[in-house]
Design a protein around this nucleic acid. Structure first.
Length: 430
DNA sequence: TCTGGGGTCCTAGGACCC
DNA sequence: TCTGGGGTCCTAGGACCC
């Protein structure tokens, strides 16, 4: 098993696109008061800047830090090229996020290819062809490969940057001894909460987990995590490389620089988010059967409301309607720091088209509420497809819905017999 | 001046079906 | 009239990953 982890990926892409940043402490993340660092160059890490740290703290540690907003489409381009190089090695690979991948080299090994040599070759190509540095772990399973890639990376000690080995191979003789000394927190799936529970049982190192029964662990961390811990502590990990994982949910959430007060502000933000989620669904030809609205208040309390329908949605109007109903069932216990909208229960929109109802002659639908809602949804889907097609051919601004116009603060045209058309339009819009 | 935004998986309780 | 046990699906919340 191979695990490849790109060094400081987002920050590295920014430096590649703007060489004047080379050698300077660079971070990608939110710049505002509530911003968080997503990626930091090693120059920044020398000052103690780390990902997941608040930007405010990072700036205190490193006043010269260059903080850049994320350009995720650009990172996606680099990520696809990264995956392309891995794919030339083997088709049996599994991305984790944009900057990591597992690859199963067993079939390659049967052909006589040395996994460690393959790892060195891949690392060389990433550097030569994409100018990206990486750490690669080679081991018996995912657990050790991931631990090994971490060990292969550069690290900061006492403000000094130490070069990594680049490729680390964990062999059968050393893996057991090495694993025993690691803190439980190093294991996949053990975060702050689980580590604290284990600490209360007096379990700090992986070695401590050995000899503890799954039943004992399960009382603290649940049956699933207990089974995982027992296996990992023994160095066992039977997780396979899964080459195509279907997307299970997608969403959009936003932490506001200034918390929202009142239902009106919440509804406005929700409409914007429904637009983003609807567009993403349509871009990927997906329908969502479940919608979830998530609210976090200023005091940190978090509440969610979700509903599952008997049919899938991808239309902005329908998403807005449902999202507003869900948000309406949340008691506003203060100002809203974060608002999120998530779509799940995803399925492919068959053939890029929509099954029309045969009795869809007019919009005066009859029948039970759910059927009427479904009929409206089908109509909207057809309308939305037409709008998407017009915009694809003539540009995003070629056409706007009344809803979008009123959000812009532009007078809606119905009162005037039509929306103004032509270059003489005082608003400068066609 | 505490902590973002993209996701996955697990748990527990309730409704419902056979 | 009261009842078991197997199962699925939904909802809400939490932990974790990058």
């Amino acid at each position: 098993m191979l695990h490849v982890d790109l060094d400081a990926f987002f920050a590295s892409v920014e430096v590649l696109d703007d060489p004047s940043l080379a050698g300077r402490p660079v971070a990608v993340g939110g710049a505002g008061e509530r911003g968080v660092i997503a990626s930091a160059s090693y120059e920044a890490r020398r000052y103690g800047v780390r990902s997941a740290m608040s930007t405010a703290l990072a700036r205190r540690l490193c006043p010269s830090l260059v903080v850049l907003p994320g350009r995720f489409e650009r990172y996606g381009e680099y990520s696809r090229r990264f995956h392309g190089l891995v794919a030339e090695l083997t088709p049996v690979y599994e991305p984790l996020g944009l900057d990591e991948v597992f690859a199963d080299l067993r079939s390659l090994a049967r052909l006589g290819v040395e996994p460690v040599e393959a790892a060195h070759g891949l690392r060389r190509r990433l550097l030569d062809e994409l100018s990206l540095r990486s750490g690669i772990g080679v081991a018996r399973n995912k657990l050790f490969a991931k631990l090994a890639s971490k060990a292969a990376k550069p690290r900061v000690e006492g403000g000094r940057l130490l070069e990594g080995e680049g490729v680390v191979w964990v062999d059968a003789a050393t893996e057991e001894r090495w694993l025993a000394t690691l803190p439980v927190r190093a294991l996949w799936g053990v975060g702050p909460a689980t580590a604290a529970k284990l600490e209360r049982l007096g379990l700090r190192a992986v070695r401590d987990l050995r000899g503890v029964s799954a039943a004992t662990l399960a009382r603290s961390v649940g049956p699933s995590m207990a089974a995982t811990l027992v296996a990992f502590a023994a160095g066992e990990d039977d997780r396979e490389v899964v080459t195509d994982r279907p997307l299970k949910s997608l969403g959009h959430e936003e932490t506001f620089a200034r918390s929202l007060v009142g239902r009106e502000a919440l509804a406005d933000a929700l409409r914007t988010q429904a637009g983003v989620v609807a567009r993403t669904l349509r871009e990927r030809d997906l329908l969502a059967r479940t919608l979830t609205v998530l609210v976090r208040f200023d005091d940190g309390a978090q509440v969610s409301r979700s509903q599952t329908l008997g049919y899938g949605l991808d239309d902005e109007g329908a998403l807005v309607e449902l999202a507003e109903a869900l948000a309406g069932s949340i008691e506003l216990a203060g100002s809203v720091r974060l608002l999120g909208l998530h779509a799940s229960g995803l399925r492919a929109r068959a053939g890029g088209g929509v099954q029309l109802r045969l009795d869809l002659g007019t919009s005066a639908h009859e029948g039970p509420p759910e059927e009427r809602a479904e009929a409206r949804q089908v109509e909207r889907a057809a309308l939305r497809d037409a709008i998407d097609e017009v915009r694809r051919r003539f540009g995003r601004d070629a056409l706007a819905t009344a809803g979008e116009l009123s959000e812009d603060g532009v007078e809606v045209a119905t009162q005037r017999g039509g929306y103004p058309v032509g270059p003489e339009d005082p608003r400068g819009r066609r």
